[in-house]
Structures are given as structure tokens and as C-alpha cells.
Amino acid sequence: MDASKELINETNLLLDIASLLMVSGANTNRVNLSIKRFADSIGYNASFFISQKSLIMTLYKEDSAVSCTRVKNIPGLALNFTIISAISKASWKALANNWDYNQISEEITRIKQVKRYPQILVTIAVSLAGAGFCNIFKGDYLNMLVAFVSTFIGLLVVQWSHRRNYNVYLRIFIGSLIASSLAAIGVKLNIGEKPATALATSVLYLVPGVPLINSFTDFLDNNIINGLVRFTTGSMMVLAIALGLFISMLIFNLI
């Protein structure tokens, strides 16, 4: 009884790690590698099926009938590269020092508590990135200011709608609509040398770069289904961005 409980705990821990990695935006191959290392360190073999919505995992030993199979649902995407990096490091340490269940579980609890950057810093950094984009597309400093302001306010709205738990595509649509409307006002007032660059870059902070790049690496690793899911998610997000831009251009009569 006690041994089987332990096995169930271990399976749950590994499922927890896999789900944490998927939520943080790791590609499927990285989840595979990390889980294999952790399973090795606690002395089991792990076979598992990863999809975007749920995980199925069996822990077993080669020469015995003892095994445990569990299913876990994965919550929505919340990109966090610090967690990916920390789990990867922990998996190396676990494998090198043969960590047991308690050590791994302590480390994972510690990793989960790692702080994100403060929200205001994130907002300013992303707005600066928007201004940088504007410079890349040959806008001058006034255009960059417009891009900065529209990204800033758009991102605030996206964060607000995130707290209200709106649908993710609706969130992106609203963010794109508001940011591009603000930039469109800049075009109407003819601020700067090439106002169109500010309009084009104001929505770029929403671009789903991580799902799209991950989808491609998944394809190359032969994780076709996960790749397709990520690609479809990314394309839907791009559609939502385009729709927001479309509508604000219609409203402001910029065509």
C-alpha cells in the first residue's frame, strides 16, 4: 500500500513538471528530455503522451509488474522562460546526484515560487520593443513615440482583459484594435515622417512568436500533432491581430 502510494506521488510529480514546462512554452522535445532525466533519477522508466490540453504518463520498471498511469489536464499558456531554464538545470542535477522524490519535489516547489518581472517593467520593456520595431522599419523618433504609446496602452488593456479571464483571441483582438486605433490617430494627425510605420508596428507586441517557432521545431522533431496544434493556435492569433488592424483602419478610413 505504502509503496504504491509513493509511486502515485512520483507519477503526479512528473506530470506536474511536464505540465509546468508545457505551460511555460517549452517545445515537446524539451519536455521529453526533462521527464526522462527526472524518471531516470528516481529509478523508473516513463512512457508518456503529450498533447496541448492533457498529459498521459505511465511510470514502470522494466522487470516488474508495478506501474502507475495518470492523466493530467494542462492549464492555459503563460510563457515563463525562467521556469524552463530552472527545470532544465534541476534535471541535470537530479540525474547527476540521483535525487529522490523529496529532493525533486522540494526543488520544483522552489522553482514555482520564482517571481516574474514586475508588471510595470514588463509593460515599459515591451513598449520600448515596439518603439525599436518602429526604428527597424525606418520610422523616425516621433513615429517611435507613437508606437511606444500605443503599445503601452494596448498592453495595459491586454493585461486588464487577462485578469478578467476573457477568451485569448478576444483579448488579442481587443489589444490589436486599441493599439492600432491609437497609432491610426497618429497617422490622421500626421505625426512624424512615416506615420504608417507606427501603425504597422503598434500591433507587433501581440505576435505569437513562441508558439510559431515551437511549432516548427516540433515539426522537425516529428511531433507533428503538437506542431500542428501550436501552428493553428499561432495562426488564429495572427488572424485576431489582422482583424483588429483591419477594423481600426476601416474606422479611421486609412485605405
Binding site: 515591451v126 520600448l128 520593443a129 512568436g209
Partner: peptide, 14 residues
């Protein structure tokens, strides 16, 4: 570089 860093902070890089 700044744009890359801005997105890095959005993705919460170490």
C-alpha cells in the same frame, strides 16, 4: 537589441 530584450522580459527570461 532593445526589441529583443523587451520581448525577452515579456517571456520572463532568467
Amino acid at each position: 537589441g532593445i526589441a529583443a530584450l523587451g520581448f525577452g522580459i515579456l517571456f520572463n527570461i532568467p
